[in-house]
């Protein structure tokens, strides 16, 4: 059985919080749902909150990289926030550096990164 992870919309940004122990199909669904919603709402930013994630394995790590790449192609920036120290240590040992994925320590800082990008983009137009 696979579930859908709820995607919240805050202004120009989408927010997902990875709370539960996700099975692989739910992870795949999230990837597709996010891409669809970025386009539907013209979102400029995606925040993925992994505060509650006890582990990030290679499958979820790949999902984070893919979401960041897909979002970038759709003109949205992705920020992963709230990674636990033990998760960071484990990811590096696993061999996943999540290159290309922006991170911030918490939700507030993640939203600040997106706000800065949005204002820089507006000034450049």
């Amino acid at each position: 059985m696979s579930d859908r992870v709820p995607i919240l919309r805050i202004g120009e940004n989408l927010l997902v919080s990875i709370q539960i122990d996700l099975d692989d199909q739910t992870v795949m669904n999230l990837q597709e749902d996010l891409a669809a919603q970025v386009v539907k709402y013209g979102a400029r930013g995606v925040v993925i909150d992994i505060t509650a994630a006890e582990i990030v394995d290679s499958f979820v790590g790949r999902m984070l990289s893919t979401i960041a790449s897909v979002s970038r192609l759709l003109d949205a920036e992705t920020v992963v926030v709230g990674m636990r120290p033990a998760v960071a240590i484990t990811l590096v040992e696993l061999g996943l550096s999540l290159g290309g994925v922006r991170t911030a320590l918490n939700l507030e800082q993640g939203l600040a990164i997106l706000a800065k990008r949005a204002s820089a983009g507006a000034a450049g137009r």
């Binding site: 582990i55 394995d57 499958f59 033990a86 240590i89 696993l94």
Partner: peptide, 17 residues
């Protein structure tokens, strides 16, 4: 330890998959 728990559970996830 918390780090070792995380490492073990992550390894288990990879191997179970």
């Amino acid at each position: 330890s918390l780090v070792d728990q995380t490492k073990l559970v992550t390894a288990a996830s990879e191997l179970a998959r």
